[in-house]
Amino acid sequence: MFGRSTQAMKDRLGVPKGRPLADRLHPINMTAKQLATQMTNLNIEQKDLHGTAQIGVEHVGNNRSARDALVNQGTIPEDLPAQEDIRKVERRVRKDERRVEGTGFKAVESEMPDD
């Protein structure tokens, strides 16, 4: 998909070792990778593919097709910016949920409009 190794993309996007690249990918890249995976899943059945080699070749080809579609529209997958780490977003959402549950949707006084 990116024209370089996973580790090279992790380095480019600042993904720490041991963390998935997907945690920082731009939504367009995630969607393209999901499309390639679904194309592979469909073709495994339709083409009756078996074994790692056959399926791997199919998947690489589908990733290349998804990449080509993006590039043809002027989007270079590896040039898209890193996104906020999904785990940080999840922690913030949990914190906000606890705050909302604790206040019962009451506006904090500093957030209330002046009359």
Rank of each mutant, 00 (worst) to 15 (best):
D68S: 12
D85P: 09
K95C: 03
R67K: 11
H59V: 00
Q83F: 02
E90C: 04
T52D: 09
I76R: 08
N63C: 11
R64Y: 05
I44R: 08
E84H: 01
S65E: 13
D96F: 07
L80K: 05
V57I: 12
K47T: 03
K47V: 03
E90W: 08
A66T: 07
N62H: 14
K95H: 10
E90T: 06
I44G: 07
A82R: 07
E78H: 15
L80W: 07
D68R: 14
A66V: 10
Q46S: 11
D48T: 08
H59F: 10
E58W: 04
V71H: 01
T75C: 02
T75A: 01
Q46L: 14
A69L: 14
R91Q: 12
Q83Y: 03
E97N: 12
D48F: 06
R64M: 08
L42N: 14
L42K: 15
Q83M: 14
Q73D: 12
I44D: 05
V89E: 00
Q54R: 11
R94P: 00
A53F: 10
K47S: 07
V60H: 11
H50T: 13
E97K: 12
T52P: 03
A69G: 01
N72Y: 00
G56C: 02
L42R: 15
E97T: 11
A66P: 04
Q73M: 15
D85I: 09
Q46V: 08
L80Y: 08
V89A: 02
Q83N: 06
H59D: 05
H50L: 04
V60Y: 10
I55Q: 05
V71L: 05
D85S: 07
G61M: 09
P81Y: 02
